[in-house]
Design a binder for these strands. Structure first.
Lengths: 211, 211
DNA sequence: GTCTATAGGATGATAGAC
DNA sequence: GTCTATCATCCTATAGAC
C-alpha cells in the first residue's frame, strides 16, 4: 500500500469520498461539542483538510451540521431496517419480537459515539429554525418507522424512545468515567445497559485511567 | 408600586437579588442555545444589565453556566423533596406511592423551560472537563435521591430517568410545534405526557400559530 | 453596584493561486 | 480538488469612571 495518509498536503480524491470522510469527522466533533461548540477548523483538522475547504464543500457550518444530522438519521434507520429484516441466527427461541433486535441495533450504533450524540445535540436545539425543523422531522421519521414498520404500539414506541434518550444521555455525560469509583454510577450503568458487550465497547476509553 | 423595570439604566439592587435575576435570565438563554451557543451578552440583555457586569458577577462564562446548573439541580431536588414530603391532599386512594408525586413534580418544573434544558445541555457536554464533572455529580445526586430517599428500586430509577430524558428531549426539540399538523407528533406527545395539564402549560407558545 | 469603552482572541467565510 | 492568505465579525474579558 502507498504511504498516503490524512495529514499529507491532501491527496487528490473523488469529491464523494472526501465528503464522506469530512462528514465522519464532523460527526465526531459535533458529537463532542454540539453545533455551536464545534468549529469548522476542528472538523477540518479531524478530517485532515483545510478549514476553508470544509466550508467550501458544504457552503456553511449550518449546512454541514444538517448534513451530519441527515446522515446520522439514515444510518440509524438503516441499522433498524437491517435488524428488522433479521434473517440472521438471532434468538431462535422466539423471544420478545423486534424489541430485542432494534435495541441491539441501537446499542451497536453507540460504537460511533458521535452519531447518536450529534443527533442528541440537534434534538435539544429545537428553538433554532433550521436545525429544529430538521431534528423534528428526523425524530418523527424514527417514530413512524417504529410505529408502522416495526409494528410497535404507541406505548411501546414511547418506552423504546425513552430508553434511547437515557442511553444517549449517559453516553453524552460520560457516566462511565465514574463506573469504577462511584457505586451509584455503576448500578445505573449496569441497569441501563441493553447488551452489556456492545455498551461497554462504546464506553471503552471513557473510564478514568485508574481506580 | 414604583415604575422600576429591568431595562432602565440599572436600578441599584442588593447583590444577591441581582444575582438571582441574572441566574434566571441565564437559565433561559442557556436552555435555548446551550453553553457554547449562549453569549454573555444575550444573558445580560435578558437580565437587563450590561454584559461586563454579568461577567464581573460570576468571573467567567463557564462559572456562570456552572452556577446555572447547580441552581437547577437545587430546584429539582427541592421540588422532589417537597413532593416526597407530600402531606398535602394528593391521591388519598393510596395509589402508586412516590412515583406519581415525583413525576408530577418533574412535570411542573417544565414550566421553567430553561431549567431542565440547561441541565440537558450540561448532561451531553460530558467531554468538557469542568462541565462534565458538574453534570455527572448532579446526575448521580438525583440518582441517589431517587434510590435512597424516594425508595425506588434500581429498575424504577432507571425507568423514571428514561422517562425524564425523553420529556426533556421532547421539550428541547419543540415537538409541540407539530402537535396540530402531524398525527405522529400528536400521538407521541399524548402518550408521553405525564399530567396533561402541566405539560401543555409548559408547551404553550410552542405550537405553530395556525394549523 | 453598575456602566462605557475597548482590548484581544477566535471563528466563519471569501478570494484567488495551484 | 485543495490550499494559503486574509477580512470582518463576534465575543469574552479587562480597565476604569461614576
Amino acid at each position: 500500500m502507498s504511504s498516503v495518509n490524512e495529514q499529507a498536503p491532501a491527496t487528490r480524491m473523488k469529491a464523494e469520498d472526501r465528503r464522506e470522510l469530512v462528514l465522519a469527522a464532523a460527526t465526531a466533533v459535533f458529537g463532542e461539542r454540539g453545533y455551536f461548540g464545534a468549529t469548522t477548523d476542528a472538523v477540518a483538522k479531524a478530517a485532515g483538510v483545510s478549514q476553508p475547504y470544509v466550508v467550501r464543500m458544504f457552503g456553511t457550518k449550518e449546512a454541514l451540521f444538517l448534513a451530519v444530522l441527515t446522515r446520522a438519521l439514515d444510518r440509524l434507520l438503516g441499522a433498524f431496517r437491517v435488524a428488522l429484516a433479521g434473517d440472521g441466527p438471532a434468538h431462535p427461541d422466539g423471544s420478545a419480537a423486534p424489541h430485542r433486535g432494534l435495541g441491539a441495533a441501537y446499542a451497536e450504533l453507540l460504537a460511533d459515539r458521535g452519531l447518536l450524540l450529534s443527533l442528541m445535540h440537534g434534538f435539544i436545539l429545537g428553538s433554532d429554525t433550521e436545525i429544529g425543523a430538521c431534528a423534528r422531522a428526523g425524530f418523527l421519521q424514527v417514530y413512524r418507522f417504529l410505529r408502522e414498520d416495526a409494528g410497535f404500539s404507541a406505548d411501546e414506541v414511547h418506552e423504546f424512545l425513552a430508553e434511547g434518550m437515557l442511553l444517549n444521555t449517559l453516553v453524552g455525560i460520560r457516566m462511565a468515567v465514574d463506573y469504577d469509583t462511584d457505586p451509584a454510577a455503576r448500578e445505573l450503568l449496569d441497569t441501563a445497559l441493553p447488551t452489556k458487550a456492545e455498551f461497554l465497547l462504546a464506553l471503552e476509553g471513557q473510564r478514568k485511567p485508574q481506580a
